[in-house]
């Protein structure tokens, strides 16, 4: 079943288009970062300057955003496009009853949809990352730190979890809505809301509540800042950018504001991988939790759904 779904994905046009898009951004951002890599590595003030491969992924000359920011926009689109018609297309073409009359469990149908899309996405990202590493090795001849490999793999895992979240969301929508177009538009609506409007709305609302910062002590300012950040973190793409930025830039040591006292003793040096991972653990688990939640909802709806309209 998974095999058939994978074949379906690979053969479909929209998938080809999205892959093309992602590869294009990958190549573009890689090109930009390659042309700036010398400056980035030579910058001794930057504690991350020794991590050539991480720099490849994050350096930019501000003409285009770095790859991981691009992905935070594109990955949802990929997930949505793979999931938005998972169930309702089957229903509309009349294949669903035929499928269910076969001796397979109903949850297997849902699982097959989910897993096949995940397999395709994971292999796509794994290919891109390995290509990048290989290409970097060939072009620069610089030895790779094991830490860099781990960080890039971590980046992959987080990205896949991020896509998986959008995938499960769109599968849920495909169960709820009978028309593929409705579910696609709803999913894209949610995506737009989180990427563009959510921040605006939060800022607007906060501003009307927030007392004048000049009247507050520093501690209170920090507290309010943390509240705002936590509210922003409801958006999955915020979680994703947080997590990925920390993983790819080892010098990032906190995701919230730091006080002067906290900064005082700190040596501007890269964090070890484990510390970075600890730092983003809440983000990663948040992503995974929302993905699981969505999938559980999809599961519940699908199992309860009457076969006929």
């Amino acid at each position: 079943m998974v095999r058939k779904e994978i074949t379906d994905h690979i053969r479909s046009w929209r998938f080809a288009i999205l892959i093309g898009l992602i590869i294009l951004t990958f190549v573009a951002s890689l090109y930009v970062s390659l042309s700036n890599i010398k400056a980035a590595i030579g910058n001794v003030n930057d504690p991350d300057h020794t991590f050539l491969y991480l720099k490849l992924l994050t350096t930019t000359d501000n003409s285009i955003p770095p790859f991981h920011i691009f992905l935070s926009f594109l990955a949802p689109l990929l997930g949505i496009s793979m999931g938005f018609d998972a169930i309702n297309a089957e229903q509309n073409s009349g294949t669903q009853t035929r499928l269910m009359a076969q001796p397979v469990y109903r949850d297997n149908i849902l699982l097959a949809k989910f897993i096949s899309a995940l397999v395709v996405v994971s292999s796509l990202f794994a290919t891109l990352a390995l290509l990048m590493i290989g290409g970097g090795l060939l072009l620069t001849g610089v030895r790779m730190e094991p830490q860099e490999l781990l960080r890039i793999l971590g980046f992959l895992v987080v990205t896949i979890a991020y896509v998986a979240f959008w995938l499960s969301l769109s599968i849920t929508l495909s169960i709820v809505f009978r028309q593929a177009a409705t579910s696609a538009l709803t999913a894209i609506g949610i995506w737009l809301f989180f990427t563009i409007f959510y921040q605006l709305v939060v800022n607007l609302v906060i501003r009307s509540f927030l007392p004048d910062p000049a009247m507050l002590t520093q501690e209170e300012v920090i507290r309010y800042n943390n509240i705002i950040l936590n509210i922003l973190r409801i958006a999955p793409n915020h979680l994703y950018t947080d997590a990925v930025a920390t993983l790819l830039m080892p010098s990032v040591r906190s995701l919230g504001p730091l006080t002067m006292e906290q900064m005082a003793g700190a040596v501007p040096s890269p964090l070890p991988f484990k510390e970075s991972l600890m730092l983003v653990w809440p983000q990663v688990s948040g992503l995974l939790a929302s993905m699981t939640g969505c999938f559980a909802l999809a599961y519940y709806l699908f199992m309860r759904r009457e076969v006929r309209s």
């Binding site: 379906d8 053969r11 073409s93 009349g94 294949t95 009853t97 035929r98 009359a101 076969q102 001796p103 469990y105």
Partner: peptide, 19 residues
């Protein structure tokens, strides 16, 4: 499951994977 293994069912508007 056992029933579905032994029973062949053709729905009224039978559909196939077009591709």
């Amino acid at each position: 499951m056992e029933v579905k293994r032994k029973v062949g069912y053709m729905p009224d508007s039978v559909g196939f994977y077009d591709n």
